[in-house]
C-alpha cells in the first residue's frame, strides 16, 4: 500500500478524527497505542507514542517510525516479515482465545 492510501492531508489519518468525547488528544493516542498493541502482539511488535508520532519495535529491536495508522500496517508487515492479515483464520483463532 502506498503512503497516500487512507491519507487525507499531511500527517493525519481519517481515523484520527472523532475519538471519544472527553478524552484529550494525548489520552486518545495512549488509548490507540494500547488497543494497537493487542493487535500487534501476535506479530511480536510493540507500538509506542513518540513526539506526536509512533515508534514500532520488533522483538529483535528493529524499529521504525510510524506517522499514523495509515502507515502502521505496511510498516508492521515489514518488521514482522509476514502479512498482517485480519482475515487470517489462524490469527483470528489466536485473538479469540484472549
Amino acid at each position: 500500500m502506498c503512503g497516500l492510501c487512507g491519507l487525507f492531508g499531511g500527517a493525519r489519518h481519517w481515523s484520527d478524527a472523532p475519538g471519544e468525547r472527553g478524552r484529550t488528544p494525548e489520552a486518545e493516542r495512549r488509548h490507540r497505542v494500547e488497543v494497537a498493541n493487542r493487535m500487534l502482539q501476535p506479530f511480536g511488535l510493540r507500538l509506542a507514542s513518540w513526539a506526536g508520532r509512533y515508534t514500532l519495535t520488533g522483538r529483535t529491536g528493529r524499529a521504525a517510525v510510524v506517522d499514523h495508522v495509515g502507515t502502521l500496517w505496511p510498516t508492521a508487515e515489514r518488521l514482522a516479515g509476514r502479512p498482517c492479515d485480519p482475515l487470517d483464520p489462524a490469527l483470528l483463532g489466536e485473538l479469540e482465545r484472549w
Binding site: M1, C5, G6, H13, W14, S15, P18, G19, E20, E28, H31, R32, V35, A36, M39, V69, G70, L72, W73, P74, E77, P83, C84, D85, P86, L87
Partner: peptide
C-alpha cells in the same frame, strides 16, 4: 464500538485487501 479499534481494524483490512 471503540473508535481506535475500528480505525486500526479497517486500516489493517484495507492494507491487505484494499
Amino acid at each position: 464500538v471503540d473508535w481506535a479499534a475500528f480505525g486500526l481494524w479497517l486500516a489493517m483490512l484495507l492494507n491487505r485487501h484494499g
